[in-house]
């Protein structure tokens, strides 16, 4: 097992398995990924970059597909779009 790494999800630090995707970090943090157009909270659906439900703000950039991005140490993730 690779070393766990630490990322921040909505301001809270969190250790995730090395190599985990950002979508995994968000689910582990107990957060949803995004608010839908009518205000529903949504989490990952397809896990493979197709559905765009896992969009989150990563290091300040909006609309990132978190299921296809690997966590890097110190990454800042926000889900309160």
């Amino acid at each position: 097992m690779p070393e766990p790494i630490t990322v921040t999800v909505n301001g809270t630090s969190l250790a995730v398995p090395g190599g985990a995707t950002v979508a995994v970090a968000i689910v582990l943090a107990g957060a949803a990924c995004r608010k839908s157009v009518t205000g529903e909270t949504r989490g990952p659906l397809c896990g493979m970059g197709i559905c765009y439900e896992c969009r989150a703000v990563i290091n300040g950039q909006l609309h990132c597909r978190s299921c296809q991005i690997i966590c890097q140490p110190g990454m800042e993730v926000r889900t309160d779009e």
């Binding site: 398995p17 995994v24 529903e40 397809c46 896990g47 299921c67």
Partner: peptide, 21 residues
């Protein structure tokens, strides 16, 4: 079906393969 933690079958598997316990 839009609730969080309702996922694809392959979708959940992919997440587990990507580190979700």
């Amino acid at each position: 079906w839009t609730l969080p933690n309702v996922m694809g079958a392959g979708g959940l598997q992919a997440l587990v393969k990507s580190g979700l316990p």
